[in-house]
Design a protein around this nucleic acid. Structure first.
Lengths: 135, 135
DNA sequence: CTATCTGCAAATAATTTGCATGTAC
DNA sequence: GTACATGCAAATTATTTGCAGATAG
């Protein structure tokens, strides 16, 4: 196994990932493919998997959806809005401590993924406004 | 919309779910279908989705895998072994408090899913034994 | 040069869906 | 009896893969 090479495709995939806010692989493909129609689906999936494997990006599985990719490497959780589906980063100050403290039955914990779900601020306000109109 | 009906299929799907330990929908299908070949894929997926929607079971998305179903409704996290893939329940005493305390930016948290990943006790021992043999 | 990458298109695999029939209540 | 459920098979959707040609180092 040799060293990974830098290619235009990898750069484009990474740029799209940063720009797109927790996108799925398919969303990254759509974004890259729009400006560079010759870039193929296979390449985007391969590049994203490679990034995830090398730790360059994080692969996140959220509820009831496909795998998403996150360029923010610092440990953090996610808030997923039940209404609009938006994913918000949630930084927990004692994130590592929570993970470390949860070890039990000899399970050696190496990392931790957390997703909160609920309603984001924007959707809360919208719902409040709508129910005010009904009354 | 009428009330949900009790059918043999639903009972079979639920029984398989309890027996199988965090199975994917496809695993549930395989299990049910083996003893009752007439039960169809579509039914198993529909029944599991219905259970998840009604809150009768919990749908869990773990890293890099398909959706899994969990009949344990009490709030808990999961430990997923990097080596053998086994999923262990992890009960956190202050689970609700963690979720509640993490609210920020107006995100209204309704629930929380946590997955720890690492190596389970069995795989740790096995690896230790193997490295001892090499030395 | 040559090991790695890429594009393409076809293959998998999970999940969903339309529709006619079956069945719980 | 009728509304909800099921079986079947075909359709979708996400992701993977084989292979020949392109290219980074």
């Amino acid at each position: 196994m040799g060293a990974a090479r830098n290619t235009r495709q990898k750069q484009m995939v990474y740029d799209a990932l940063v720009r797109l806010d927790h996108p799925t692989a398919t969303q990254v493909y759509a974004c890259v493919h729009e400006e560079h129609p010759t870039v193929s689906r296979g390449t985007v999936f391969r590049v994203l998997s490679g990034f995830a494997e090398s730790g360059q990006v994080r692969r996140v599985n959220l509820f009831g959806s496909d795998a998403r990719y996150d360029h923010t490497l610092a440990p953090h959780a996610h808030g997923r809005c039940r209404v609009c589906g938006w994913v918000q980063d949630v930084f927990l100050p004692d994130f590592a401590a929570i993970a470390a403290g949860a070890a039990s039955d000899g399970f050696c914990i190496e990392g931790c993924e957390v997703e909160f779900y609920g309603v984001c601020a924007a959707c809360s306000e919208k719902q409040m406004r709508e129910s005010a109109n009904e009354a």
